[in-house]
């Protein structure tokens, strides 16, 4: 029994270790202006190189641990967003990137907008900015990874209210 417990603990630790070192992400644009998307793409390119944290952006939700969302949620994209989220294996984390993804941003009050991502999905990390600088996006990802190391449970698992992890905007020039 005792042995079993440590064995499970170790497995848990191993899983966390693996998750922290190689989170795979999928990016979904649910109505953004593209500004955030190009900044996310920019984080992959040589100058910012997000892959040094092990984060890899790839195509299929079924392989992803992290869902990076940009843009306000449009009516038409809502179902796709939920479907993609549900296709992801547990535990899964959501990062909302950009003012739009936080609250609807500049598009608040438009007829096709439902609001921010957290209207639809439980969000773990909010990265403000319009668009956030690549550094801020990386910061958001790293904050998530640090929290994971500290035993953070995904927002989806914690019952009831969401506890957002605010990420400060870096000093934009």
């Amino acid at each position: 029994m005792e042995f079993n417990k440590t064995w499970q603990d170790m497995l848990e630790q191993l899983k966390t270790w693996a998750r922290v070192n190689s989170p795979w992400a999928i990016h979904f644009n649910s109505g953004s202006c593209n500004g955030c998307d190009i900044e996310i793409l920019a984080t992959l390119t040589p100058r910012y190189d997000m892959e040094r944290f092990g984060l890899k952006l790839q195509g299929s939700p079924r392989h992803a641990d992290v869902l990076i969302c940009t843009g306000p949620v449009t009516r038409q994209a809502r179902d796709r967003l939920i479907r993609i989220y549900e296709q992801m294996p547990d535990p899964k984390f959501v990062i909302a990137v950009g003012s739009c993804a936080l609250s609807g941003g500049a598009f608040q009050g438009c007829y096709n907008i439902l609001g921010g991502i957290d209207q639809v999905l439980p969000v773990d990390v909010y990265v403000p900015g319009c668009p956030p600088r690549p550094e801020a996006i990386i910061d958001g990802v790293v904050k998530l990874l640090e929290q994971l190391k500290a035993g953070y449970q995904p927002a989806a698992r914690r019952s009831g209210v969401l506890r957002p992890v605010p990420v400060p905007v870096t000093d934009a020039g």
Binding site: G31, C33, I38, Q76, A106, F107, Y111, N112
Partner: peptide, 27 residues
């Protein structure tokens, strides 16, 4: 899928506000 209703949204904003909305048609 990314239709946000900007043309209508601009009608509900002032001329100055619309500038910042329209700037976000495309990043």
């Amino acid at each position: 899928y990314v239709h946000r209703g900007i043309e209508k949204g601009a009608e509900q904003r002032s001329w100055v506000q619309a500038l910042y909305l329209l700037e976000r048609v495309c990043g």
